[in-house]
């Protein structure tokens, strides 16, 4: 565990806490894409199947359980909470998830490192995570007056994957046999999707204006 990896995981955790804070404090999930949240739950579910087969560390197990628990609780609030569910922008959240789920599944079947069910599902989760933010970015573009917590949530999510790239560079330089091009390419693509958002996020911050995407 290096400092970049720890910082990345903590940023990821904080992003989720910021989203939960938004939902609890404002009793609203306005501007949040349920499609992206569904995709993240799927990502965690398929990636962490090894919870039952492989023990890595207490840190690893606890974090996996936290990510699973929080992602499903967010979905619960957005779908079923009697107040929160009414604030969901269903009409605006129109991205068709099937257009990214199917290609990712096909890609995972074709390009993977081991022909086993667990490994293919794990690879699928890597591909899917790379593009799971797309419905959220589309929804943000359609949202007038993006609130601070929503903007910071997306910013932290992008930062988390960017920090993972530093972690991969560090591990590549310090650990022999550390080669993971499937993860690296997906991670770079994932971070790249945020470049546009980052640009407008910093512009709004510098000019002290509310964030909005053109």
């Amino acid at each position: 565990m290096n400092i970049f990896r720890l910082a990345a995981d903590m940023t990821h955790l904080i992003s989720i806490l910021v989203l939960l804070l938004k939902i609890h404090a404002t009793r609203s999930c306005r501007g949040i894409s349920l499609k992206t949240q569904d995709l993240y739950a799927l990502v965690f579910l398929f990636r962490y199947l090894d919870l039952f087969t492989r023990y890595i560390s207490l840190y690893n197990t606890v974090m996996k359980l936290v990510f699973l628990g929080t992602s499903f609780s967010i979905i619960y609030f957005m779908r079923f909470h009697r107040v929160v569910r009414n604030t969901y922008d269903k009409e605006q959240d129109t991205f068709r998830s099937i257009f990214i789920v199917v290609p990712c599944a096909v890609l995972a079947l074709l390009i993977n490192q081991e022909r086993s069910v667990l490994e293919i599902l794990w690879t699928f989760s890597i591909y899917l995570e790379a593009v799971a933010i797309l419905p959220q970015l589309v929804l943000l573009q359609r949202t007038q007056n993006i609130d601070n917590l929503t903007g910071n949530y997306v910013f932290l999510l992008g930062t988390y994957r960017g920090l993972y790239i530093l972690n991969w560079i560090y591990r590549y330089l310090t650990e022999p046999h550390y080669r993971q091009w499937i993860v690296w390419l997906s991670g770079v693509l994932q971070t790249g999707l945020y470049v546009d958002f980052f640009y407008y996020y910093f512009l709004a911050w510098r000019n002290n204006q509310k964030l909005s995407l053109p």
Partner: peptide, 10 residues
């Protein structure tokens, strides 16, 4: 297996 590396990541 050298590819198992990142399975220790989240």
């Amino acid at each position: 297996n050298v590819f198992k590396g990142t399975h220790d990541e989240l």
